[in-house]
């Protein structure tokens, strides 16, 4: 009986259009996503582009061994981790605090204008923002150094000093994204039932008490969820941003896995080695994302689809 119910209502004659609708998209994914996954075999070859993915000489794990012996490897992995972790922490903290502060504002015009202004940088590419930042942060008469000089500070070589570079990367990334990231917390804040605030006032709660006992518990689940999901990005230090801001002067602290792979693979044409490093990143990334999604669905009932 159960079998009958499962199979009967879905007949092929009615459902074939559904398969047909998926076909073009799946074909594109097959070619541009799944074929490159097969192309990972480059990592085990002495790859020569003209011979295709399977025509080159196999070298086994040679590239991986070379990767481990390279002093660069430890540097770029450390740089990636440090920058990404700082970004994750700041990228969580700043939007939450900003959303809480903005939520207190009861002048609606101000609130809306502020939102319009802080979301805007999110929509600009790092090429545009990089162009602005290189000018604004320049050592010789850049706007930031000019302002600092009023207080007798600087000038600082923001984009050329290895000691400052990571900080600049994290701060400018927060500057671009905090407004946009705050949207989700603002949505959660506006979803808190006003009755809870009324009840708190009835019980004699001051503003502080309301924030502490109503607002914070109200957004905690979404904060925990975002923190969990961000684990998956621990090897993504932000290629677009760093590529557009870094220079050989700051490779020591600012060179990350993705920028290194780009230079090794596409500029120096060490295809096998670059693919091997990229594969290492993809595999670790897959594990981390899987863990974070599993944790999110297990502890926060989160489902992406």
């Amino acid at each position: 009986m159960l079998r009958y119910i499962r199979f009967k209502p879905v007949n092929w004659r009615r459902n074939w259009p559904l398969h047909l609708m998926l076909l073009p998209g799946l074909a594109m994914l097959a070619v541009f996503q799944y074929v490159p996954m097969v192309g990972i075999v480059i990592a085990f070859q002495d790859f020569v582009p003209t011979r295709g993915f399977f025509g080159s000489e196999w070298v086994g794990l040679e590239h991986f061994e070379f990767m481990l012996s390279l002093p660069d490897t430890a540097t770029i992995v450390m740089n990636t981790l440090i920058i990404a972790v700082m970004k994750i922490i700041m990228g969580l903290l700043v939007p939450v605090v900003f959303a809480l502060l903005l939520n207190e504002i009861r002048h609606h015009l101000v609130k809306r204008t502020v939102q319009t202004m802080v979301y805007f940088p999110h929509f600009l590419s790092w090429v545009i923002l990089g162009g602005i930042l290189v000018d604004v942060l320049s050592m010789n008469g850049g706007a930031v150094n000019q302002i600092l000089s009023w207080f007798g500070l600087g000038p600082y070589f923001f984009l050329g000093d290895p000691g400052l570079f990571r900080g600049v990367i994290v701060v400018t990334d927060v500057w671009k994204e905090f407004g946009f990231s705050a949207i989700i917390y603002l949505a959660a804040l506006s979803g808190i039932n006003p009755v809870l605030y009324e009840a708190a006032v009835m019980d004699g709660a001051t503003r502080w008490r309301q924030v502490w006992h109503v607002t914070l518990p109200g957004i905690m689940p979404i904060v925990v969820l975002m923190a969990t999901l961000s684990i998956g990005g621990i090897l993504n230090a932000g290629f677009d941003q760093i590529f557009n801001l870094y220079s050989p002067l700051v490779y020591k602290t600012g060179d990350i896995i993705d920028t290194w792979v780009y230079r090794a693979g596409l500029l120096d044409m060490q295809y096998g080695l670059a693919t091997a490093v990229g594969l290492f990143k993809s595999v670790v990334g897959l594990v981390l994302i899987s863990v974070s999604y599993w944790a999110a669905s297990r502890f926060a009932n989160y489902r992406i689809f």
Partner: peptide, 22 residues
């Protein structure tokens, strides 16, 4: 099954070099 085929591309990728070679 379709969903997994599609979502897997968000979780894993061939990386820069194989994509460029393709």
């Amino acid at each position: 099954v379709y969903v997994w085929v599609i979502v897997f591309t968000m979780l894993f990728s061939g990386g820069l070099i194989p994509g460029y070679m393709l």
